[in-house]
Simulated assay, not measured.
Amino acid sequence: MPSGEYQAAFGDGEHIFRLRIGELEELQEKCDAGPEFILQRIYSGAWLVADIRETIRLGLIGGGMPPTQALALRNRYCGEGALFTHKALASAILAAALMGSEGDEDEPPGEMKGETSPSPEDDGGSPASTKPAGSSGSTRKRLRRRTSGG
C-alpha cells in the first residue's frame, strides 16, 4: 500500500482511505486546525463533529472514491448518533496520513525520513546512537518534535 493509505470497513464494505496534501489542506480549512492538532483533539476526546466527519469524507476521496459518493456514504453511515463509533476510524486515517501506514516499503518501521545517527567520526569515536537523547522512542513524539516550530 502507498504511504498514508489505510484500509478499513466503513458503512457498506471495505474502503481505502488516504489524506494527501490537498485533502489535508481542505481538512484544516473545514476544522480550523492543523492535522496533528485534529488528531490530538480526537485522541483526547475534545473532538469536533467536523474532525470525525470531514476526516472520513476526505479520506474516502483521497482513497479514490468520487466526491459525491464519498459525501453520500459519509452522510449515510456517519450521521447523528454514530459519531463516537467512528472516532477510531478518523484517528487511524489521520495517523496514517501523518506517520505512514504499516507496511510502507519506503521506510523502515519506527524511523523518520532523513533521521540519521551521527557517525563515530562526528562524535569523537563513540558508538552511534539509535535514539536521540531523552527520546521515548515514540514515532509520534519524534514527528511532533520534528514538525513543530517551523
Rank of each mutant, 00 (worst) to 15 (best):
L24K: 01
I38V: 15
T55R: 07
L48I: 04
A128V: 11
L98Y: 03
T85N: 14
K30Q: 13
Q7I: 01
E36A: 12
A96K: 02
S101T: 02
G45A: 07
I42C: 08
E115C: 14
A92L: 11
I61N: 04
K30D: 13
E105S: 10
A96M: 12
H15T: 03
S3G: 05
R74M: 00
E80P: 10
Q40V: 02
P35D: 10
G110K: 13
E80I: 11
I61G: 03
Y6N: 02
S129R: 15
M112G: 07
G79L: 12
G59Q: 01
S3H: 09
Q40H: 07
E80Q: 12
Y6M: 03
V49F: 06
T68K: 14
L19K: 04
L24G: 03
T116E: 15
I38W: 11
T139R: 11
R144I: 11
A50L: 01
G81C: 04
L71V: 08
W47K: 13
R146L: 13
G45S: 03
E23S: 10
G134Q: 05
I42W: 00
R140G: 05
H15F: 10
L98R: 02
R140W: 15
S129N: 15
E29K: 12
R145K: 13
R57G: 00
G103Y: 09
Y6S: 00
R74C: 01
E115K: 14
G13E: 00
Q40I: 01
T116Q: 14
T85D: 14
A92G: 14
T147C: 09
R145S: 14
E23K: 00
L19Q: 00
G149W: 03
G45Y: 01
A90P: 11
A46H: 04
S135M: 07
P132S: 04
G114P: 13
I38T: 15
L94W: 06
L71C: 01
I21Y: 12
Q69G: 01
G125P: 14
E105R: 09
A9C: 13
H15R: 12
P2Y: 05
D12Q: 13
E80F: 09
T130M: 13
G100R: 05
S119D: 15
G45P: 07
G22K: 12
M112P: 05
I61L: 06
G11Y: 07
G100W: 05
E107V: 03
C31E: 03
R144P: 07
L73T: 08
